[in-house]
Nucleic acid binder design. Structure first.
Lengths: 335, 335
DNA sequence: TGAAATTACGAAAACGATTAAGGGAAAACA
DNA sequence: TGTTTTCCCTTAATCGTTTTCGTAATTTCA
């Protein structure tokens, strides 16, 4: 591997000069700067990141902390898309992405330890239980953090506009004439609360009362549980004409349960998901859902974190909302 | 951050001694070794990876090169599961995982350059066009590599046993009485060839002739294309009783096309996928498919690569096959 | 008991970069 | 002409490890 020293030798200057030339510092005459840069390119020079990191405490590496209940990791139907876009943005700014966890080699480490050990410059936190002390420890550390879908003092945040999304979805369903709308929501979390509150508010605005049995707790991304809750809803004396699921993936479980019960969607009963994962659109009929702007969420999270890393002056407490888009699909029929 | 120097000071020894004690070198008396280790733990010492990497040229970082035609990245329905298991295994052995690509910051880099720059200790290569010169350059470099689903001289490989998988799937379909079996395969690749050859061979073994129109080229993980090819098959004078798709995800496109054409599965026509992605089992009816052992593939790839990194004596040319499992599902009916 | 071998440690160089401080030469100024 | 600035460049320290080599102290052996 060619190092600064080699270039210095080839150019007949000191390594300091080469370093400055390559980093575009003002301390070097223009012609020499050009010459050195050309020579470096010609020699195929690649800076040694380890050496640079050692000296500057800057690794060009950002961490992702992402641990959902179901341990889906990279296979999470919704977040894998966010991650993909996050990764793309990070890469385009010269950062690599490392997953943070607490199993490291033989020993358990805290998230913070893993971050320090790997020397990440910052961390994006998504989809974890934000009340875990371990997570708090990380957020309260001096490592810059950006959280997704959760606001935390001491951390910037990117939020999907769940309330507005729920509104778009509900307004559409209501416009199709539905009045008996059930909602199988996910486990309690900031996102869940936001959506649920929005759900109740919108119905109230329309003067519609919701029977308690219509609102049930399910589990995010758990089709079996969604199927189970769906069966419960079907047993009601007065079953809903439309069922909302916590997410698209769960809604597929609901769909299966309905089919098993001999009902067809949307002729006999309507359903809607949330997220807009890619499978939703290739179902027949395509799923009615609220498409989250995963591309923006991921990109903005990376961008914000890197801004925080590179210009720490930026306030640590800004929050950006990302709007979703209604995907009409065909699983909600006109009554 | 506490460094070797701090521990050395606290223990009244030199940094060399501390380093040796922590790395369990024989050059240190046992009692002192114990004492130093305790002190280090007590002080919350974490080694500085950058410094270590600089000195040892070992980053405890492995690269993943993974670029499919559809640029699905982390959202690839099948490989995301392989990656997840790969990542888990790597982490359990103290390695982090970095994605390799050729957009890095502003400039384009070759895969090899990215690897050298990030200083990865080895690379797992999957799902790329193995004929690209860039990929060859990487494989022929001195960086240890493991390829998935492709054999290359100069690289270890983990292979899914596609021929055997195809056999299991076909034998099942044949056992259900099907004789008119169409196959929409993916674009040409080692995997595609292996499956296609197996497909023809098995039919031949059973004395069944395949009309040319029954074997069509589709695209992996492309439901739209699968739908299109499905429609073509339905137009035939003598349409098949069962359609094989390149993968489960594509088969959902086929399923939608069939449904649109007013056919129900499996009553009117049977279908089968390949891979065994999680959605397959929550469809109603659940998809008949060949489940690939993604867990093993990912784990073995990571394990082999790390073995290669840590004990370079291991031959560079060993190949392991991973068997799949038939997932019966209910989309192939008995004729 | 004296020589050889072993053990346990430390001093110091190195890895490849960044960067503060210093200095020589040219340019600017009086 | 002498002094001050300015411009470029070098020297050298430093980041936190690992590792070679030297050596003092101890043990082993003849």
């Amino acid at each position: 591997m060619v190092s600064l020293k080699d270039i210095a030798a080839a150019c007949g200057v000191s390594t300091a000069t080469v370093s400055k030339a390559l980093n575009d510092l003002p301390d070097i005459s223009n012609e020499r700067k050009q010459y050195i840069r050309e020579k470096a390119k010609e020699m195929g020079y690649l800076p040694n990141l380890a050496a640079r990191a050692l000296k500057t405490n800057h690794s060009y590496n950002i961490g992702i902390l992402f641990v959902d209940d179901k341990n889906s990791g990279l296979t999470h139907p919704h977040f894998s898309k966010v991650l993909e876009s996050l990764k793309t943005e990070a890469e385009s700014r010269g950062y690599d992405v490392t997953f943070i966890n607490h199993q490291y080699g033989k020993r358990k480490t805290s998230y913070l330890e893993h971050c320090r050990y790997r020397g990440v410059d910052g961390v994006v936190i998504a989809c974890v239980d934000f009340n875990q002390p371990e997570v708090l420890e990380l957020i309260n550390s001096n490592i810059p953090t950006v959280t997704i879908d959760h606001v935390f003092s001491g951390s910037a945040a990117i939020l999907s506009d769940n309330a507005q999304g729920m509104r778009q979805l509900m307004e559409y369903i209501l416009s199709q004439g539905h009045r008996q709308i059930a909602y199988i929501h996910g486990k309690d979390s900031a996102v869940t609360r936001e959506r649920t509150v929005s759900f109740y508010r919108i119905l109230e605005e329309h003067g519609i009362e919701v029977p308690d049995e219509y609102v049930r707790e399910g589990i995010y991304n758990d089709p079996k549980e969604a199927a189970e809750q769906t069966r419960r809803l079907l047993e009601l004396k007065n079953p809903p004409t439309c069922i909302l699921y916590p997410d698209d993936y769960a809604s597929m479980g609901g769909l299966a349960a309905l089919k098993e019960a001999g009902l067809s969607v949307p002729e006999d009963i309507s359903i809607a998901g949330f997220d807009g994962i890619s499978i939703a659109e290739i179902l027949e009929p395509p799923l009615t859902t609220l498409g989250q702007d995963t591309e923006s969420i991921g990109r903005m999270a990376a961008a914000k974190l890197i801004d925080l890393i590179e210009k720490p002056k930026t306030t640590n407490q800004d929050i950006e909302k990302v709007a979703g888009t209604l995907i009409t699909g065909r699983t909600v029929r006109k009554l």
